[in-house]
Design a protein around this nucleic acid. Sequence first.
DNA 1: GTGGTTGCAAAAAGTTTGCAGGCTC
DNA 2: GAGCCTGCAAACTTTTTGCAACCAC
Lengths: 142, 142
Amino acid sequence: MKSDNIDTFIQECKSRGLNITYPRMAIYKILLQYKGHPSAEDIYKQVQKDHPNISLATVYKTLEMLVDNDLVAKVTPLHDIVRYDCNKDFHHHLVCIKCKKITDIENDALNHLPIPENIDKNFKIINYRVQFDGICKECQRA
Amino acid sequence: MKSDNIDTFIQECKSRGLNITYPRMAIYKILLQYKGHPSAEDIYKQVQKDHPNISLATVYKTLEMLVDNDLVAKVTPLHDIVRYDCNKDFHHHLVCIKCKKITDIENDALNHLPIPENIDKNFKIINYRVQFDGICKECQRA
DNA sequence: GTGGTTGCAAAAAGTTTGCAGGCTC
DNA sequence: GAGCCTGCAAACTTTTTGCAACCAC
C-alpha cells in the first residue's frame, strides 16, 4: 500500500512533467508516513535523519510545488496570518480562497451538528466551527 | 448600539482591573467597526489614521490582552503555522487547543451538511470543513 | 546538453520581548 | 505615588527569494 502510493506519486509527477528527484521522494515519503499533520519544520527535522543534506528551503519549495499540483493539502483553514474578531457569538465562516476575505455566517442548523460518535471518547470537545471555502462574487468576475 | 458596546467594554475592563487607556479604546473601536476579520497589521494601519503615535507592538500587546481576557476571538482555526496533509480525501479535524495536535475524523454525517441558505447567492462554495476544538486525553491529565 | 531543481545565504514577513519613560487610578 | 501600560528597537520565528552549481531526462 505504501509503495502503491509512491508509485502513484511518481506517475503523477511524470504526467505533470516534474522530475523525479531524491528530495521529492524523501519528502513525500515522510508525508505519507507522518502521523498527524506536520509543519515544514517537522518534515525538515524528519528528513534530516536520513538525508542531512536536504535543506529547509528545499522542503518549503517542494511543499509549495506539491500543493500547487494538488498532491498535498495545506492545512491552514483560513490563511497564514492571525486574524481577530470581536463577535464572540457562535458563528461560522465563509472564506474566499482567492482574496482571503472572511464573512461570518449565522445559521442555526450549523449550530446543532451531531457530534460524531466514532471519535476518541477521551477527547473533550469544547467547541466547533464550520468553514466554507469558495470564491466570492468579486473574485469570480476577475 | 456602538456606544453600548464601548460602554460594555469599559465595564469589562474595569471589572478585570484593566486600565482604560487611549490605545485600548482606539483598537477596540476599530475591531467593532471593522467589516471582516482584520489582522494585527490591518488594525495597525487603521489605527494609524487617527492616532499615528500608537505602535504596532502596542497593537499586538493589546490584542493579546483582549484575547486572554476573552473579549476578542482569535480567528486562526488551527494554529499559527502551516501544516500539511497528504490525505486529500474529504475529512474533518479534531484539534487539541493545548498541544495543537490534529487528528483526522472520517464521518459520513459531517460530509453531508446542509448548505446554509442565508448566505450570499453569489458566493461559490467549493468545499467545507468542520473543526472540533477540545482537549485531548494526554492534556487533560496534565 | 538543456532546463528543471537544489542548497546556501540573505531577506522578508509576522510576532514577541526588554526596558525606560509615561499615564491611569 | 505605585504600578500598569506604551513606544522603541532589537530579536525571534516562519517563510520566501536570488543565484550559482547540480542533476534528471
